[in-house]
Write a protein that binds this DNA or RNA. Structure first.
Lengths: 199, 199
DNA sequence: TGAATTTCGCTACCCAAGTAGCGAAATGGA
DNA sequence: TCCATTTCGCTACTTGGGTAGCGAAATTCA
């Protein structure tokens, strides 16, 4: 049942997200301006701000929509499954990190990923939404690990979340802090290190 | 030998950093404004910008100065040494993460840490300076690991940098992404997981 | 039909980052 | 002493995120 007043134009959301997506992907976070998004979407800036209270919220909405909800493969080979998962996470990071750079000029910039992390720190609700995205994705991998553990393919005292944080953390650390590339080779080394231990 | 023109007032740098430090610690990144820093330091804003080309550069200078150059303990017990090191890293993160919050209202905000990560992504030179800070600190821990490995206390195929990235990465992941607390207990669990492996 | 309610577009505005340009002050060198 | 050079303070400005307030449009309910 409709609320009381004039209904929202639902096409507006779509047009705004479209325009914002294009700007974010082509020009990066700094090149995404609410003025231009509003202009391209053919609406007033105030209308935009009625739906997304800050640019950070808008950018998160864009990125959340871009997330492909890829499934996790479960072949029973935990080493391989985890490597596959890490590679998918890495691919997502790499897609965002080059956003806004002229082709060929990649630099070490973590770009949009870093800005979204900062956005999460600035607004509590953005942080929660972001955490939901990660959590949903990690939950699948978590079950993968639990199953392997319960079937005796991993040590019984393995804490799935700690293991995941070790793996994903290293990827994010590379992208955000050291700026080194993350590829399948690195994902493999990482999983090997985490599974085999250092002792 | 002095350059040609009017010399820079060296006291200005000190006064600016002082004012910026206080603002950053008390009000957080968003509460640090170049206008107020300049006013408190008793200089014109243009003078500030002649030394630090952006607010991001200034903030990094502040944080870099705050880093305590604590040594790394080497007791020969690699498990304990790494835990100590992780705890020091965590302490540094926790110090920055509460910056700008009224006491008691900690929230999950990663605050200044996240903003600095974004700053590194925005300006290549800020990124390089930041990486230098981390690299210098990590180099010590790296040697610690190498020594343990070469003395047979760790597997011979251990890659020190990968191990460090696993450890530090998980800490940063917690602070920046999941927002969970990092304390000594977590540091211990982390080191145990990395050393013992999951298999 | 009319009243209440909500969205929309518009204009004008505030704030903070960062820049342009100028005259005055402080230095080294001829 | 005079000149080149550089810093400094100042004022004015541009840009982008975000807000206030208003009149018009679109809807529900009586």
């Amino acid at each position: 049942m409709r609320p009381r007043g004039r209904p929202r134009d639902t096409e507006v959301d779509e047009r705004v997200l479209q325009a914002a997506t294009e700007l974010l992907l082509r020009r990066g976070y700094g090149g995404l301006t609410t003025d231009e998004v509003a202009e391209r979407a053919g609406i007033a800036k105030t209308t935009l701000y009625r739906r997304w209270p800050t640019k950070d919220h808008l950018a998160l909405a864009v990125v959340a929509r871009l997330q492909d909800h890829d499934e996790i493969t479960d072949t029973g080979d935990i080493r391989r499954d985890l490597t596959d998962y890490m590679e998918k996470v890495a691919a997502g990071l790499n897609r965002m990190r080059v956003a806004g750079l002229p082709p060929g000029q990649e630099s070490r910039s973590a770009g949009t990923v870093a800005e979204l992390v900062a956005a999460a720190a600035r607004h509590d609700d953005v942080g929660e939404l972001e955490r939901d995205v990660y959590a949903r994705r990690n939950a699948l991998a978590c079950r993968l690990i639990e199953r392997a553990r319960d079937e005796g393919r991993l040590r019984p005292d393995v804490d799935p979340m700690t293991l995941l944080e070790q793996l994903a953390g290293a990827l994010y650390y590379r992208v955000l802090i050291t700026g080194n590339p993350v590829d399948r080779a690195y994902a493999g080394r990482l999983v090997a290190a985490a599974l085999d231990g250092a002792l």
